[in-house]
Simulated assay, not measured.
Amino acid sequence: MATFLYARVSTTEQTLDHQRTQAEAAGFTFDHVIADKGVSGVSVPMRERPEGKRLFDMLRAGDTLVVRWVDRLGRNYLDVTDTIKTFLSRGVIVRTIINGMTFDGSTKDPMQMAVRDALIAFMAATAQAQAEATKEAQRAGIAHAKGKDDGSYRGRKPSFDRKQVVIVRDLLGKNTGISEIAKLSGLSRQTVYRIKDDPEGTEKALALWPEREM
């Protein structure tokens, strides 16, 4: 029985390091780390990713698959639910770092199965909805920026970058306190609250000032 970490980032500019760091901080150790870099979780199904396909080939009954959250498996509802159900049917245990969820296919109790499947469906739907909201905010911000040739109406440059936003959102998902998040991300408490309370505005700011993204 082996433990796998699967990590994914959608652009080549992003790094995978923080996903492994979070997993290790949560107490996980790994026999294998499988990672796809620069691969969309929206448009590229898990089975069609270079390392995702390899993961399908390697996982066996009794193995444990660890992911930061289900959105690393993908941001398409049907793809994510199909992927997880396929792994569970093989006898693989799927665990998430954020929220500490464990999905085990060994149960035969219909009520437990119904609750498990409903939770998987909800998390997969949330991942897709977040991706769609982010994409829409980015489109709006880019369209606004293109309409202002001199850039004078873009507003003040944000005090955060993409990497810091990812850190903040990850820690919020783990119910970390605002003061601790500010310390770990290098941002002020006010900025952390702004990222938390205004996700659409955050994405628009990053789209208007792409040079701040990392």
Rank of each mutant, 00 (worst) to 15 (best):
M1P: 13
T3Q: 03
F4R: 00
L5W: 04
R8D: 00
V9P: 00
T15S: 15
H18T: 08
T21M: 12
H32L: 09
H32N: 11
V33C: 03
G38W: 07
G38R: 11
G41V: 01
G41T: 00
V42T: 13
V44Y: 04
P45Y: 10
M46Y: 12
R49E: 02
P50M: 03
F56G: 00
D57G: 01
L59D: 02
L59G: 00
R60S: 15
A61I: 02
G62D: 13
D63Q: 10
D63Y: 06
T64K: 07
V67L: 09
R68D: 09
W69V: 05
V70G: 00
D71C: 03
R72T: 07
N76C: 15
Y77H: 12
D79V: 04
V80S: 01
D82S: 15
K85Y: 13
G91I: 04
I93W: 03
I97Y: 04
I97C: 04
I98H: 06
T102S: 14
F103I: 01
S106T: 15
P110T: 06
P110N: 05
Q112N: 14
M113H: 09
M113L: 15
V115K: 10
A118E: 09
L119K: 11
I120G: 05
A121H: 03
M123H: 08
M123W: 07
A125M: 15
Q128L: 05
E132R: 06
T134C: 06
K135M: 11
K135W: 07
E136H: 08
Q138V: 12
R139N: 12
R139D: 14
R139T: 11
A140T: 10
A140W: 03
I142M: 09
I142T: 06
H144L: 10
H144C: 01
K146S: 12
K146I: 10
K148C: 12
D150S: 11
G151T: 06
G155V: 00
V165M: 01
V166G: 11
V168S: 06
R169C: 11
L172M: 13
T176W: 03
I181D: 01
A182T: 03
A182W: 02
S185L: 01
S188H: 05
T191I: 13
V192S: 00
P199T: 04
E200F: 03
T202W: 03
A205H: 06
A205C: 11
W209R: 10
P210N: 09
